[in-house]
């Protein structure tokens, strides 16, 4: 375009405008890459700004998310009607089973109490929880996180575990004043120290953006099979121990994966567990010890 420089002002003005636009384009692209680099370097500035922006938009997202939630509830109610009879039969059977378990639990609780008093056992501090509503989903193809409508003012802190009724959903990645972002266990950045409930083998549950996170760092001699329950181990001090996560499934490619109990597409409410008080007494992640087989008695 520079070759066509003419004598008239008009002929010059147009290329100048184009040049300015080109410059703006380059400048913006470079700025975008700069921001990406800054956030990759875990700069606190990018996180702070993002948290403030999410906070500002949280009330709007809260309002916008309600109609979809209401429709979802209505659909669930209507579906519930058609399953009423089957549910009734199933629940009656389950109730009978649970009554037996209740009996067993009572017996074990009193036995546990007696043994604890014998051993002079000091129970860990009780954790508190905060109930929150999911106001935003991640619309991205490569992100698995949600925003909830509680933040710093409600006692939400970075690192708290987020659970739904059936198990672990994720942890608080950033907490703003009135909103917080929960990184789900399926996200590519999520790593959760876990324990296979039956064998007591330890591993790390590593998200890869698929619906079923992978189990990595499993001991070579681990005796596990499909269907085994996976719970948080509590190592690293981020999550309370014993939170249900899901069941092991061995994929066709031989990779151990966990099918989470939580249905992430139906995540409407989550409870955030304040576990920070206990974290100081739990050994840090780096201090790896060989898996204990007989830890549960």
């Amino acid at each position: 375009m520079n070759k066509r420089g003419g004598s008239s002002v008009l002929r010059l003005a147009v290329p100048a405008k184009v040049l300015l636009q080109r410059f703006a384009f380059l400048f913006l692209i470079l700025t975008a890459f700069g921001i990406m680099l800054l956030s990759k370097a875990e700069t606190i500035v990018v996180e702070k700004v993002s948290t403030v922006v999410v906070d500002v938009f949280a009330p709007i997202m809260d309002v916008l998310s309600r109609p979809a939630a209401a429709v979802n509830d209505a659909v669930k109610t209507v579906r519930g009607f058609s399953d009423l009879r089957d549910d009734n039969i199933r629940l009656k059977r389950e109730n009978e089973r649970l009554l037996i378990w209740q009996e067993a639990a009572r017996r074990l609780a009193s036995q546990n109490q007696a043994l604890q008093s014998l051993l002079d056992f000091k129970p860990g501090p009780k954790s508190q929880s905060i109930a929150t509503r999911v106001i935003a989903d991640s619309g991205g193809a490569f992100v698995r996180s949600v925003v909830v409508n509680a933040g710093d003012r409600d006692g939400v802190r970075k690192g708290q575990a987020a659970v739904s009724g059936v198990g672990l959903a994720g942890r608080v990645a950033t907490a703003g004043y009135r909103s917080a972002r929960i990184l789900l266990i399926t996200d590519i950045n999520s790593r959760v120290p876990v324990l296979i409930e039956s064998s007591r083998d330890r591993a790390i549950l590593s998200g890869d953006n698929s619906g079923m996170p992978r189990l990595i760092f499993l001991p070579a001699n681990a005796s596990i099979k499909s269907g085994d329950r996976v719970v948080t181990s509590g190592h690293g001090g981020v999550f309370p121990p014993g939170l249900q996560i899901g069941r092991i499934t061995v994929a066709t490619d031989g990779i151990m994966r966990v099918k989470p109990n939580v249905r992430f597409d139906q995540l409407e409410f989550v409870r955030l567990i304040d576990f920070a008080a206990v974290s100081s007494v739990v050994p840090k992640e780096g201090a790896e010890t060989p898996p204990k087989k007989a830890a549960s008695r």
């Binding site: 975008a32 890459f33 990406m36 956030s39 990018v46 925003v147 990645a173 972002r181 990184l183």
Partner: peptide, 10 residues
Amino acid sequence: DILVGAPPGI
């Protein structure tokens, strides 16, 4: 990027 939690800038 910020609202969906994607790497900011992408």
